[in-house]
């Protein structure tokens, strides 16, 4: 009996290879992300306090907007050329294959944005020592976004206006990610402000938000792969 993880690794490898060979998708998402996060400070002027206050929201909204079009296309190519059909007739469990695809999508879609975020954070006056926390929130919240996006993309397969459909499904589901994510990064800022003002010990208000976001991620990790698999099975029927 060969491991059921082997096909999962094969899918991850294939998707990463494809993405690297045609980096257009990654670059378009990244450039969109950079555009939003540089245009907002330019438009708002140079009030550092104001910028720092809205930075978490802007960064999160930019991540969501930049990743949405790519999530929408997560399965379309595989659906058209019959790769999804072969996944369905594979002895490997479809939900596992979908989890592999989702984790790879995180690497391809979210990771470049997370890596670009520190540079952009500086424009918003986010000091360098906060970055670890901010990156943690973006990485975790980004996983939530991909898990939601995969379900939405699978559910909208076969519909002609799949872009609109995906957006409509993703929007309400990703509200909690936005709320906890923004609150979390804001909390990091206040944590640091208070730590600087008083004794130096961090109060850790951001930890609570991180745990909520983590709980959400875990729920979605369990929920999203089987839902995605079922939606794809339905679309291939």
């Amino acid at each position: 009996m060969r491991g059921m993880f082997q096909p999962c690794f094969a899918i991850m490898l294939a998707d990463i290879r494809s993405a690297l060979r045609y980096p257009g998708d990654i670059l378009s998402g990244l450039s969109f992300f950079i555009m939003i996060t540089t245009l907002v400070p330019l438009g708002l002027g140079s009030d550092q306090g104001e910028l720092a206050r809205i930075a978490p929201a802007i960064i999160w909204i930019a991540v969501m907007l930049a990743s949405l079009p790519q999530m929408d296309r997560l399965f379309t190519r595989h659906a058209k050329n019959g790769v999804l059909e072969q996944m369905l007739v594979s002895p490997a469990p479809m939900a596992m294959l979908m989890l592999a695809k989702i984790l790879t999508a995180w690497v391809i879609i979210i990771l470049p944005l997370v890596l670009a975020a520190p540079v952009l954070g500086l424009m918003f006056g986010l000091p360098f020592h906060m970055l670890a926390g901010v990156l943690g929130f973006l990485a975790m919240g980004g996983l939530c976004l991909v898990l939601i996006g995969a379900m939405a993309a699978a559910l909208s397969l076969g519909s002609r206006q799949s872009g609109i459909f995906t957006a409509i499904i993703v929007l309400p589901l990703s509200m909690p990610v936005l709320i906890f994510g923004v609150a979390g990064i804001s909390a990091i800022q206040t944590d640091h402000a208070m730590a600087g003002a008083s004794t130096g010990a961090s109060t850790g208000a951001s930890t609570g938000h991180m745990m909520l976001l983590g709980a959400l991620t875990l729920v979605l990790l369990v929920l999203s792969p089987p839902v995605t698999a079922a939606a794809i099975r339905f679309s291939e029927e």
Partner: peptide
């Protein structure tokens, strides 16, 4: 449908298909 992975070369595409076939 041929289930070829458009962005991969023939060898890599076949390798994925083989592992899906177990």
């Amino acid at each position: 449908r041929n289930a070829g992975l458009e962005h991969l070369n023939v060898t890599d595409s076949l390798r994925l298909m083989a592992s899906l076939m177990d």
